[in-house]
């Protein structure tokens, strides 16, 4: 459905997307990368808002920029939080439905359907200006699917949603992808992506770093030494216990704070399973737990170095 051929996009001297070639077909594909990786730029090129500076971006075999034939088959949920604040949710979805080509005769029915799909029927007559972040996200998704597009591009669609909302929307995306549509979802949260799909495109600093199965990426991440910072009054005792674990590479006590210790492990999942058990068994009081590596930026740094 989508083909990128050596596509690059510059903003003056700054590069947004750097020489990306790939194909995206039906199913759910996650576009994964830290903030500033170029995900939104790539999505804007796919949705015809930006032209590639060099290379080509094609959807359904056609160039995308301001192409009505492509846009008729495409639904887009932008990352922006602002909207038509004075409109009600229903007016917003209807207006964009008409513009997307939904016939007048079917507009009301279709609007109600999508509002119901995103669980917003109850609040659809309120002004968007009074909506919470999660409600805004839901009507944004509703307007993207009102014309039943074959290609759905969703830029950080789970931002601002509560856990229940995340689950509902994730299920919706999986359902849409399961019916043969091409659904592209961007995110900077690995955990979130793992709930939805195995197919990911990994971006960093405008470049495509990896494309394929999320488990392969996971394996790379697991091989990456993972640091965990723990705060407890009996830091020396805990350090001794943790060093007994075979997969712990090192334990370092902080020079500045005697209650702080930093553990380095190659198997973070196993470590997180074992830590509560040790704490409960030996009665440690944990006052702080943090992992400086438990984010995508760290993973990308590792992958890029690798």
């Amino acid at each position: 459905m989508i083909a990128l051929n050596r596509a690059s996009r510059w903003y003056g001297q700054v590069i947004g997307v750097n020489d990306i070639s790939c194909r995206i077909g039906p199913g759910l594909t996650a576009l994964l990368g830290p903030n500033g990786a170029g995900k939104s730029t790539l999505m804007k090129m796919i949705t015809g808002q930006l032209r590639p500076t060099t290379g080509h971006v094609l959807a359904f075999g056609e160039r995308t920029f301001a192409n009505a034939r492509v846009l008729r088959r495409l639904g887009y949920c932008p990352e922006i939080e602002t909207s038509y604040e004075d409109m009600t949710g229903r007016q917003f979805v209807s207006m964009l439905g008409v513009m997307a080509g939904v016939p007048t005769s079917a507009l009301q029915k279709r609007t109600e359907e999508v509002l119901d799909t995103v669980r917003m029927s109850q609040w659809a007559d309120r002004r968007i200006g009074g909506y919470s972040k999660g409600m805004r996200q839901r009507v944004k998704i509703a307007q993207a699917i009102i014309h039943d597009p074959e290609l759905l591009v969703l830029d950080e669609p789970l931002n601002g949603l509560d856990p229940v909302g995340r689950r509902e929307m994730t299920d919706l995306f999986v359902r849409l992808a399961g019916s043969g549509r091409c659904v592209i979802v961007s995110s900077h949260i690995l955990y979130e992506v793992e709930q939805m799909t195995h197919s990911i495109i990994l971006m960093d600093r405008g470049r495509l770093r990896a494309i394929g199965d999320v488990y392969q990426i996971r394996a790379l991440i697991d091989a990456h030494p993972h640091r965990v910072a723990i705060q407890t009054e009996r830091s020396r005792d805990l350090a001794k216990r943790l060093l007994d674990l075979s997969y712990v590479l090192s334990v370092r006590l902080s020079q500045d704070d005697p209650t702080q210790l930093e553990v380095e492990t190659r198997m973070p999942d196993l470590f997180y399973d074992d830590l509560p058990r040790i704490v409960l068994r030996d009665g440690f009081l944990i006052t702080g737990l943090d992992s400086p590596d438990n984010n995508l930026e760290a993973v990308f740094r590792y992958l890029v170095k690798g």
Partner: peptide, 15 residues
Amino acid sequence: EQRTIVYLLTRPVAR
């Protein structure tokens, strides 16, 4: 300014 222009420009309507 409101950044809502993205909604209009991603519709299949001649600009």
